[in-house]
């Protein structure tokens, strides 16, 4: 049984399994994608963002600043 045949039989063969995989994958994809874009954004704008600036402020170490 080839690899491609196995993949077909486990994921694609039954429509219910296929759809469930798609919707479950959408959640995973969204989390991974958001994280990836954030990483890229922070790498691109390194040194300009607040989290970088905060490190230069004396006495503002691990403080929570939500809001």
């Amino acid at each position: 049984m080839s690899f491609y045949h196995t993949v077909f039989n486990t994921v694609f063969k039954r429509n219910s399994v296929f759809l469930t995989t798609i919707f479950a994958g959408a959640f995973v994809f969204q989390a991974v994608f958001d994280e990836g874009v954030n990483k890229w954004w922070e790498a691109r704008n390194k040194g300009k963002l607040w989290k970088d600036v905060k490190l230069t402020i004396p006495g503002a170490g691990e403080e929570e600043d939500d809001e």
Partner: peptide, 10 residues
């Protein structure tokens, strides 16, 4: 200003 240019305490 909090989380943009100043910390909460500031």
């Amino acid at each position: 200003l909090v989380g943009v240019s100043h910390t909460n305490a500031e």
